[in-house]
Computed example of a mutant assay.
Amino acid sequence: MKAVRVHRYGEDPHIDEVPEPKITGPWDVIVDVGAAGLCRTDLHVIEGQWDAIQHPQLPYILGHENAGWVREVGSAVSNVAPGDTVIMHPLVTCGLCSACREGQDSHCENALFPGLNTDGGMAEQLKTNARAVVKLDPSLRPADIAALADAGLTAYNAVRKAAPLLYPGTQAVAIGAGGLGHIGVQSLKALTAAAITVIDTSEAALELASGLGADTVLRSPDTAAVREATDGGAHVVFDFVGEHGTEAQGLEMLRNRGSYYSIGYGGEVRIPTIELISREISVVGNLVGTYQDLVELMTLTAQGDITLHTTAYDLDDAVQAMHDLDAGKLTGRGILIPPAGGRST
C-alpha cells in the first residue's frame, strides 16, 4: 500500500510502498483510511521536535487524524465490525493504567500514538485498537470529519474545560481561526454563552470565523483593540497558535483573574510570578481530549453544530500539502485522500 513516511528529520517525507498491516492481537482493528488530516504537528514531527518525547523508529508513517471504514477486527472486538464507518481517537490506549481508568486517555501510561511514535494513517490502511475507534453514522463521510480526530478534539476539549468560566456576559478571545481555531469558535457557540472575539491575520480566516458565529473579528492582535472589544479584557483567551508572539499577546489580553488556554504550541509562555500572583491569572495546557470528548464532538457534528472546513489533496500530493500548510496557504484544515478513498473495491 502507499504511505507517507518520515525517513530523516529536516527533510520532506517520502511516498513509499509498504506492506499492509496485519491483525496480531485480539483487540486489533484495521481500518481502510478514507481521509487523514494534515496538522501543524506533522510539520513539527518532520522538524524533529517530537523525537525527544516520542522516540519513534525511523522510517515511519505520519498521520494522527484519521477516519475510514473497518476492514478487519481481532477476535475480541465487539464494538465495531467490518464495513463500519469510524473515526479514531489519536491514541491507542491500554485501558488498564490509572489514567485510562479515570477516563484520561491522552495520558495513558502505555499509549501508542499513531503518526508520532508508530505508524499513522497517511496511508491506505491503519492498524489501531478497539478502544480507539468511534463508530459513526454511515452517512458521515471520512473526508468531512477526519481532522476532527485531533484538531477538532483538541479545540473542543479546551472549550469544554473552560465552559464553566464562560457564563452569560463573559468574553472569550480566540487567537487563530485556522484548522484548530474555526472548530474552537463553533465549540464556543455550542457550549457557552460568552461573546466571542476572533483574531487572525488572514482575511479569509476572519470571514470564516464571522460566518461561524464570532461576534467580533480583528485583523490585528493589538492589545488595546482587544481590551476595547472585550470591555476590559478577556475572561478566557484560547491561543490556537501558541508561537510567534501570540503567547505574550494572549496573556496581555486577559482581565484580572482571567485564564489563558494554550492549545497551539511551538513558543514559550513567560510571565513574571508577581504578575501571575497579583492578577491571579491561570495558564492552562491542553493536550488532545478524551474518548468521551470525541464522542460528544461527533454528536455535535451529526447534529450540524460543528462543520469542518477543509482543503483536500490526493495522498500522492502530501508533500505539496505540507508546503502549503507551512506557507499559510490553507483555509480550514488540509486533508489527504488515499486512492479510492482508501476503501477496497
Rank of each mutant, 00 (worst) to 15 (best):
H14T: 15
A3G: 11
G341H: 03
I277K: 06
P164I: 01
R141V: 08
G74K: 00
M88A: 13
S278Q: 14
P339H: 04
V226L: 11
S210A: 12
T301L: 04
D150K: 07
D239S: 07
D215F: 11
G120P: 08
E20I: 08
H182C: 13
Y60L: 01
D314E: 14
K22P: 10
V217H: 10
H107A: 14
H309D: 08
E203T: 13
V86H: 00
R333K: 12
L166A: 05
T307S: 14
T197Q: 13
R5W: 05
P338H: 07
V4G: 05
F240R: 03
Y156M: 11
V31P: 04
I274C: 11
G232I: 14
H244W: 03
V288N: 03
T223D: 09
A35W: 12
E243P: 02
D51N: 03
I46M: 01
D84W: 05
L287G: 14
D326C: 02
G103R: 05
G341T: 01
G341S: 04
T345W: 03
R141E: 11
D42V: 00
A158P: 13
L43S: 00
A162T: 05
G213C: 07
A174C: 14
L91Y: 15
L38T: 01
L208T: 08
A123P: 02
G181I: 00
M298L: 13
P26D: 12
H44C: 07
S259G: 02
G10W: 13
A146I: 06
D316P: 01
A52D: 13
V80M: 03
Q49A: 14
Y265D: 03
R5A: 02
A3F: 13
R5Q: 08
L136P: 10
W27R: 09
P56F: 03
I183L: 08
I263P: 11
P272R: 07
A155G: 12
A177P: 09
I183T: 07
P19M: 01
T118Y: 06
Y260D: 05
T273F: 14
P13V: 00
S259R: 04
D32V: 09
L58F: 09
Q49E: 14
S187I: 08
G152R: 07
I61Y: 07
H14W: 07
A224E: 15
A340S: 13
A204H: 14
L153T: 01
L300Y: 01
C100E: 06
D200Y: 06
E203A: 11
D305M: 11
L188N: 09
L287H: 15
L308S: 15
F113M: 04
A193Q: 12
A174T: 02
G341I: 03
S262R: 07
A52I: 08
T223S: 12
A76Q: 04
A81L: 08
A143D: 14
L336Y: 03
A111Y: 14
M1L: 15
A229H: 09
A111E: 14
T299R: 10
A195C: 10
Y261R: 02
S282Q: 11
D12F: 00
A234R: 05
L297K: 00
G184C: 06
V319E: 01
S187Q: 11
I175S: 15
A302R: 09
N157F: 13
T192A: 08
